[in-house]
Nucleic acid binder design. Structure first.
Lengths: 332, 332
DNA sequence: CTGAAAGCGCTAACAA
DNA sequence: TTGTTAGCGCTTTCAG
């Protein structure tokens, strides 16, 4: 203990072996006798030695960190406010638990992507998980490094894990229809958001299939947006008896708005959300919603990066299932 | 472009200078003429050169990453479900925005801390933000590296940013009292959680000060816990007219439980939460709550690490303020 | 099986 | 101002 921490050199000296041998036992690499192995292990314990990961990475050129790139389009409902990113984080962490790989988080504002894209691409090692990156950004990153996988619908060339957003939206409307609801309105997400686009498409398909009136508006994936949208909808179409809302946060706002107009949820107006994050269990009544398997998707994406099983255009699909709680009920 | 990416060596060669000079302009270090500076800059652009951060870190010994250590005590309401960590993340990221420092996230299960503590301590560079680490873990990490700061109440020796949890709890009860509420119950957090302990203390102080009956129970900082606790409370003390709930997630559950018994919030039973995270705007009615300035605290903690202004026992304090929404109202 | 030696890409004395 | 020369701590040939 002369101030700075022990290096592999110290370990080697104490164990009376060469640095190479010390390195071998450190990495469980073959080519070291049981005797020396024990001596080195002992020395490591005695010195309290921990390898310097930076030096390791430099020397081996190995890739020991996964990047989570969180693109923030709306600074207000950024990381702090949105439960989505925590779920992604949880999924990534789960995949990293057993392997010795670090997680680095990079948050980049949408307007700032151009400036940072090269640096980000250059710094990637094991690869990057793209959360909420627009197709063009994803494409650019993919071109620069190959080692990226998006967890939202993205450009055709970019590897991705995708949830069946369209199918989920369709199933939501179908469920509402099966409950006897016929005046089903929809609150969609942002026009350019790929998830929102897919959900919108699924909704439209269902509206056609069930010959429903298309009463739609958009709410920007925020609580406030959902609240305002619901109010608008109710004002223009007082006879609405159900709402399909493209995310839980908006659904929370919608429920508040609906009850504020004196209507009861689910009796007068049933609502189904989308995501199934923590918000869904905090609304009153509890939110019936379509479960987006975010953690599982993030885990899968991370595994893809780790195993290197990504090829341009690669797709892994996840289903979106209905989670019945209390915000949707049969008519009457 | 011969396959691998350009190194500073390549830049130097193309610019016709030494590696040292290239390094100087790269780091905006003094000691390079304007002429060479331009040549190097040009070469960097031509080659699309990006410095290898790993090599940089190794050579300079500089500390370029901040660790966020998230301790998870309950795997169920882990990262994915709890809005707290996203707020912390947002705060840390905000402090890192301008400086060239990376954020690494390490999630460690409470039962696993013993096994990982040495590795974590050894890997620290700029330092670590301790989110939700118990006092003994914090102490151990602090002993091993000095460069840690907790963002929850912790052991006396560990540097920390602390919110006035006790004051906040006291203020919550005072507010309820000022509204004319006299049968104020409390739903506390986990017995061993330091935040919960402080809030409990503040509540107890207020109960004494206002000569209120002490009707308390615990809910474990989960929605389910809050729900069950509220039901229990209402069953045993049907005349309760207000609840102080130690976190928003539990408050959401409490509101659901209260309305499920046929009582109205805030009219019959007013409730005040604690945190002011996304959950507070998703309940119905909107939750009146005590704002824990999590982002600001995380930002402050990160700055402390970056500037090195941490000494054992250092404390930076934050106030907790009432955010009035719709879940608490005057009696009558 | 073991060790000597050559780097990984960069920074930072130290000379010139 | 510029370049030369050592390393940072580790991995990994390559001989022995």
């Amino acid at each position: 203990m002369n101030g700075s921490r022990p290096t592999i050199e110290d370990v080697a000296r104490v164990a009376g072996v060469s640095r190479a041998t010390a390195s071998r036992v450190l990495n469980d690499a073959p080519g070291a006798s049981e005797v020396l192995r024990r001596r080195v292990t002992q020395a490591i314990a005695d010195l309290g030695y921990r390898p310097n990961e930076t030096a390791r990475a430099l020397a081996s050129g190995r890739q020991r960190t996964v990047d989570l790139i969180a693109v923030i389009d709306n600074p207000d409902l950024a990381l702090g406010a949105h439960p989505y990113y925590s779920r992604v984080l949880a999924g990534v962490v789960a995949a990293l638990e057993t392997v010795n790989v670090q997680l680095r988080v990079q948050v980049v504002a949408e307007h700032d992507t151009a400036r940072r894209i090269d640096t980000i691409a250059a710094d990637l090692t094991a690869g990057a998980i793209l959360a909420n990156a627009a197709p063009d950004l994803a494409t650019q990153l993919h071109q620069r490094s190959r080692k990226v996988v998006s967890i939202v619908p993205t450009a055709p060339s970019v590897p991705a894990v995708e949830a069946d957003n369209a199918g989920g939206a369709h199933a939501a409307v179908r469920h509402l229809h099966a409950l006897g609801r016929r005046r089903i309105a929809a609150i969609h997400g942002p026009d350019l958001n790929t998830c929102a686009i897919a959900r919108r498409a699924g909704h439209r398909r269902a509206v056609k299939a069930f010959k429903l009136p298309d009463i739609s508006t958009a709410g920007g994936f925020t609580r406030e947006g959902g609240h305002a949208a619901a109010l608008r909808l109710l004002d223009e179409h007082p006879d609405i008896d159900a709402m399909f809302v493209a995310c839980d946060l908006m659904a929370a706002g919608a429920i508040q708005a609906i009850t504020a107009t004196g209507r009861r949820v689910p009796h007068d107006v049933s609502v189904i959300g989308f995501d199934d994050n923590v918000v869904a269990i905090c609304t009153n009544p509890l939110l019936t919603t379509m479960r987006l398997p975010t953690e599982e998707m993030a885990t899968a994406a991370t595994r893809m990066l780790l195993t290197g099983t990504i090829t341009p255009g690669h797709r892994e699909r996840f289903t979106v299932e209905l989670v019945e709680r209390d915000s949707a009920s049969p008519v009457g």
